Simulated scan of single mutants.
Amino acid sequence: MLRIIIFKLVLISSFIANANETTWVIRGNQSHLKDHGIETSASNHGFSSINNSNKIKAMAHNSHNHWQLLAQKDFKPIQQSKAQKGNADSNIIALLDELDTDRWLNDVTTLTGWNRTTGSNDNDSAKDWIVNKMAALNLSVSTPQFNVGNSTTHNIMGEQIGSTRPDDWYVIGAHMDSIPSNGNAPGAVDNASGCAAVLEMARVASFYEFEGSLLFICYSGEEQGLNGSYHHVDSMNQSERDQIKAALTMDMIGYTDNSDHDLLLETSSAQQAIMQHLEQMAATYVPELTVYSSLNPFGSDHMPYINNNMPGILSIDDDWDQYDDYHRSTDLPENLNNKQALYIIKTNMAALVSLATLVDTDLIFKTSFETDTI
């Protein structure tokens, strides 16, 4: 569904002016809200205004916590990034060129072959497949187990230890579980797109040496309340939490509802440094991408890190709320946009490489044949 382009470029400040009569702001997918009889207005960047009667409906139907209600006075305006292009590192450019969107799409398609509802046999099958993918990259793989309700499920974690700063950890994560309103849960956009991005970033990074340590993690149980990411954070003591220097989360990264390519970055006011770094990476290495920033964090696997004073950040399609197949059995690979995904993956990969610090730059010149064998 196309929207008038100029509407897309208007910042959320104009939306706030239109919302003055309502006093409430809601963050949620538009089709999902409509399914629950919740009417919105002035939607942009995933946020809309609602009146008091719809606010009451939203509160009554949100047992799943898939949308956020904010008093207008608590809402922080969405801003378009003003980061300027910096001096590009040729080694980072060469490494970004190794990213393969065809491979990413193949991995998304494979994941959508399983009904990845948390606790299901298909979720376990997808877990085993991800484990094999990570093990083939010579990552140290573990599958911490936890419960979601009466079901047992697992995170999948692949570690690559840094050579000179092994106690500095950089997390690259996305949830691998999916959920349907009814029927199957292929979850292509939400969130095989993010999970496959973690695998593609791990594949490229595995060929190189970094100063810092990398943790590639695919969480389960996200749709029931961020269970996997909370399990990861809760399993660490304070000293271990202090070692997390950045937690990059990707969710719904392969969709756009028009010809624009937009990224919404989301973190808390206390963690703006990590947001500014990703803004700079996008401006420098992915000029095709328009970046917006939100300080209203909610609803994805960056939250457990943020809530424990760790530098967590979410990358999500700016159009995620316009995706009509959200939480439906029609959330299929044909709805994906390869360029949109590539631009967001590149932004996160550039951030990862610059933060964890590439060591052996001579490896940049290995042939594509060598890096295409896994």
Rank of each mutant, 00 (worst) to 15 (best):
G86Q: 14
A88G: 03
D89W: 04
S90L: 12
I93P: 00
L95P: 01
L96A: 02
E98L: 08
L99R: 02
D100T: 10
D102Q: 09
D102P: 01
R103W: 04
W104D: 02
L105E: 03
N106L: 12
N106T: 11
D107G: 01
V108N: 00
V108W: 00
L111K: 09
G113D: 11
N115I: 09
N115F: 14
T118H: 02
T118E: 07
N121F: 10
N121R: 04
D122C: 13
A126S: 13
D128R: 04
D128Q: 11
M134V: 09
M134S: 10
A135H: 05
A136T: 13
L137N: 14
N138T: 13
N138V: 12
L139C: 13
L139R: 07
V141Y: 08
P144S: 05
P144V: 12
P144D: 12
F146K: 00
F146P: 07
F146A: 09
N147I: 04
V148N: 05
V148H: 06
G149L: 09
G149K: 10
G149E: 12
S151T: 12
S151Q: 15
T153F: 04
T153P: 04
N155K: 10
N155F: 06
I156E: 07
I156H: 09
G158W: 02
I161D: 06
I161E: 07
S163L: 14
T164I: 11
P166Q: 09
D167H: 15
Y170D: 02
V171P: 06
A174V: 01
A174S: 15
D177N: 05
S178C: 09
P180G: 10
S181V: 13
N182Y: 12
G183D: 07
G183M: 02
G183L: 10
N184Q: 14
A185S: 15
P186N: 00
N191H: 01
A192R: 02
C195S: 15
A197S: 15
V198I: 09
R203D: 12
R203V: 12
R203H: 15
A205P: 03
S206T: 01
F207C: 08
F207V: 03
Y208W: 10
Y208C: 10
F210I: 08
L214E: 11
F216R: 08
C218Q: 06
C218I: 09
E222P: 08
G225A: 06
G225N: 07
